[in-house]
Amino acid sequence: MQIKQRDENIQYTHPHAALYDQYSKAILGYLRLHTNSLEDAEDLLLEVFVAALEKNNLPMLSPGHQLAWLRKVAQNKLSNSYRRTQRHPQTSLDAIANLFFIEEGPEYIALQREAHQQLRSHIQCLPELQQQALQLRYHYGLSCAEIGVLLQKREDAVRKLLSRTIQFLRQVYSQAEGEKKC
């Protein structure tokens, strides 16, 4: 997206950028009313405008029709989000781990922190693209198709990237375990 600046007025060379500038606050406000967090609302806003980018004739519509279309897409994205959370409720790994360990003393907490720090350090050693793909998939819960749109990759390429990244992390952990046993 190229932006040309003249005096204090910003002119967009891409028509969808102007749509975002004009309607993003209104759509974000609507989404924020119906979500639990600002981050969830911002994620859905991103999905709405990704859909807008895919609709080539949206800038040609009248402003009223543009806003109506964006609101309808936002409503659909909210519905999908509700359905997704009902079908696949998300629980943190820590909450599940607590079910298996009755006694959570200082030693257990220290081991958990060490394991999380180790995972973070291994992930930080990965290339930026792999880090982004992992974050989008496991932190934000996006599908491979949605990640593909954001990273401008095909869905099958994202699947392969995630698979290879996870396989690499498994190898790193198995090597680390092998070194501990020796």
Rank of each mutant, 00 (worst) to 15 (best):
K4V: 10
I96V: 13
L38R: 08
K72H: 14
A26M: 09
L53H: 08
S163V: 00
L45D: 07
G148R: 00
A17E: 11
F101P: 00
K72G: 13
V149Q: 10
R113H: 15
N76M: 10
L67E: 11
Q132L: 15
L46F: 02
M1F: 06
K25F: 03
K77Q: 15
A17Y: 01
T165F: 09
A41H: 02
P15I: 06
Q124K: 07
Y138K: 02
R84M: 09
S37F: 00
Q90G: 05
A18E: 15
H116S: 10
R84A: 14
L46S: 11
D43S: 12
K181Q: 13
E8Q: 10
L19H: 01
L99I: 03
I10E: 06
Q130M: 12
N9Y: 02
R32H: 14
H116I: 07
N57D: 15
E155S: 13
Y108N: 03
H116V: 03
L46A: 14
Y173K: 04
L150R: 15
A68Q: 14
N56I: 05
A26G: 00
D43P: 00
Q90K: 12
L134D: 07
L31E: 05
Y173N: 14
N76Q: 11
A41K: 00
Q132W: 01
Y173E: 14
E104N: 12
A95H: 12
Q132F: 02
L126T: 02
E107W: 02
L129C: 04
R87D: 11
L44E: 11
H139C: 12
A74P: 01
I109A: 11
